[in-house]
Design a protein around this nucleic acid. Sequence first.
RNA 1: GCGAGGGUGGCGGAACUGGCAGACGCGCCAGACUUAGGAUCUGGUGCCGUAAAAGGCAUGGGGGUUCAAAUCCCCCCCUUCGCACCA
Length: 868
Amino acid sequence: MPKFYDPRSIEPKWQKKWEEDKTFKAPDSSDKPKYYALEMFPYPSGSGLHVGHLKNYVPLDAFCRYKSMKGFSVLHPMGWDAFGQPAENEALKRGRNPREMVPEYAANYKRTLKLAGCSYDWGREIDSSQPEYYKWTQWFFLLLYKKGLAYRSTAPINWCPQCKTGLANEEVKEGRCWRCDSLVEKRPMPQWFFKITDYADRLLKDLDSLDWSAGMKEMQRDWIGRSEGASANFQIANSKLQIEVFTTRPDTLFGATFIVLAPEHPMVKDITTPEKISEVEAYIKKAKAETEMDRMNAERTKTGVFTGAYAVNPVNNKEVPVWIADYVMMGYGTGAIMCVPGHDARDFEFARKFNLPIVQVVSKTGQSYELAQAEPDEGLAVNSGKYDGMKTADFKATITKWLEEQKIGHHTVNYRLRDWLISRQRYWGAPIPIIHCPKCGEVPVPEGQLPVLLPEVENYKPSGTGESPLAGIPEFVNTKCPNCGGAARRETDTMGGYACSSWYFFRFADPHNDREFANKEKIAYWMPVDLYAGGIEHARSHLLYARFWTKVLYDAGYISFQEPFKILKNQGSLLAHTPGRKPKSSEGADDSEKILDWIVLKPEEMEDFPRDQIVWRWARMSKSKGNVVTPEEIAHKYGVDSLRIFEMFVAPFEDDVQWSEESINGSYRFLNRTWKWLDAALPYYKKDWREALPREMTGREAQVRRKLHQTINKVGGHIEGFQFNTAIAALMELLNELYDYWQPVEQERKVPANEAILAEILENMVLMLAPFAPHMAEELWQEIGGKGTVYKAKWPSFDANVARENEITLVIQVNGKVREKMVIPSGLSEDIVKAKAMDNSKVAEIIKGKEILKVLVIQGKLINIVIK
RNA sequence: GCGAGGGUGGCGGAACUGGCAGACGCGCCAGACUUAGGAUCUGGUGCCGUAAAAGGCAUGGGGGUUCAAAUCCCCCCCUUCGCACCA
């Protein structure tokens, strides 16, 4: 037994042992209850893992280790989200082939995760860019295709000029590409979509059954954006044409004084009168040139032009002008709105600017009055003919029914959610398994011919033309139609990375299956995922897509559950104190640059930058900011167990943490103190301590045992509640008590009063340490002759009788203020507690001569005496 | 603008269904042991007040409910995140 705590020799030793023994291998079946814990699989970047990444991996690892000790059969896998643009871009930047690069980077990640002591079953490692994996990604595409959920359309899409590819709506943030921050353009291109909108309602409803954070669910709800209302047709005056509008306020129909169409609305050219054509065309041209960003700026004033046409308001037969304006979006509803300036702020602004009539049709009082601004609230109908006086909700139902009877409208539900754009005009992705045949049209690649292999090429740069680089490879493109055998062309778009991550959690249940995406029984055993952890940045995209595919699988009869992730946890980020500077006036002024008030100073720029102008901020660790701390350097200084303890102890799992090396010393000190105490107790350890424990215990012995069992209870509870910080705090408290009880320092060491107690503490402490500091725990477990690995040892059991306090500190309040405390036996009757409190000399002093109004006793805690 | 979190010592953070605010750690102060210590051990550490007590004040601000409020209710301020002309 080494005298001193030496993580640098202990840690590699046990990591090697775990690997050799396949300690963390998840069985294919077991009598034990299963537990499937999963972290979002990472894209292995060239920068490697830093301590910030471990903020997620380490607590989840502790959780899995705990579950294993609690008797669960644990599945804790890891794999690589290797396809997609991050990998491709990095490969391009470094002039390397992603095929060679990705495995290297993955190996580097794996090395660091092992260094951190993470308990993955590496036998289940997957790589989404390998044909054996993406064969099944393609299979999923075909499944969706067969179900009518994959289609090709030339609708205008979000085009990122920098990435040279289309982006799904979820990948556009504030009008910019989420990866490169370029302004996104609208571009019409034939593209593949998945019909996620068919599932909008179910994706929304089933959120209720999930144990996810309120914020997370809310973000999904917002993104799906369900709104209920009615559609109504407006006849164009002197024409057979009709315009369909969508409104959530059909009750305000009488107040609709004009119609606005989106500039892209297909009917614009049909209704515009000859004298307005040039003006309208000019406006459309201008609107087209505008970026998403411009259009989204709500601050700017409204613009629009009159088309010269009038529509007839069906409820009162009044003719209302039809305008076009860019504040109406083609992508939402019908791309046309009826405008009720009295009760919609945007319409109000527009009407004011262009002098259009404003009519009040809803009133708080039932009387009409001058409107100073739009009043969007509910109330009573006014100026609405025979409906006057009706309440908003009733009026909505009544008028919707009327529209239906007249066959000019109906009740409608609208979603903000759009279909999922899956096409990428890029090389590094799973090819879409479709063949275009001049005779047969679109033909899916027969399942037996999967995978459609991604060809090995020299040049995989995005083409300038907007086409995928695959289009330039005749051997790939030219093929035979599976239907008629004639010459045909392969689809050259690849699937975006989110396709791979929409089903990988199934694959982990059966990662090497070459006949199915995963075996049904294995899925039935392991799925759904019990605990899923990852960054909040995937709140919409990934989690929505994964839920969608799961529902498709359910509908197709492959699985028996509808939601993949029962519990979801989002870890906070690790922030590093990062030097930066204010932007120069030349920077940020340009509209195409993201406006920033702080720019990171690279380490190389730091040297000759004036000290007093450096602005320090807390920023997320990333290699590009030059503020990363690697697990390697910390492991070298303190050992990885200290790093693990620090990451879990410093703050709750969901919170952001400011990295500082000072506080890691506290974790190191804790482990050192623990080691010292346990090491000193070792000579007294006996396996049969249970029999040797005296029946009755008093004084210090009873006290320290009480603390031990209270700690066992707390630590387990805190881990279950995902409160790793307080779990570790409880262990620290126990350790403080242990030092109080018995000093491990040789000079001061006394012969322990009871050796069996030392043994009990030692054994239980080792077990409780195991999830957090697994290397130290294994070492000590071995020292006390524990069987096998501590990973599979049984979690300590809590004895409520031992933990029970036999005395309590009674807090005595007078008029709600603490005046005295006294130690009394627990379990006394209320009357006796009262009597004891009144008897206390200090209390007696205070209440002397006062009238006692009330005495409240909270058993086991406190007494409050109310006096006058 | 809308929606969801959050505001507690010098710092990170504790506090079960309302019941001792500040667990645990960092930092700081003092002592012990030491050639030394940025090691280790022991004690102290919210603020005001005092020689020490007593006592008073404290959970962003203001009001309220209650014997009792960080916790529940109302108003306001700040902050983080998400969405943003969604009809």
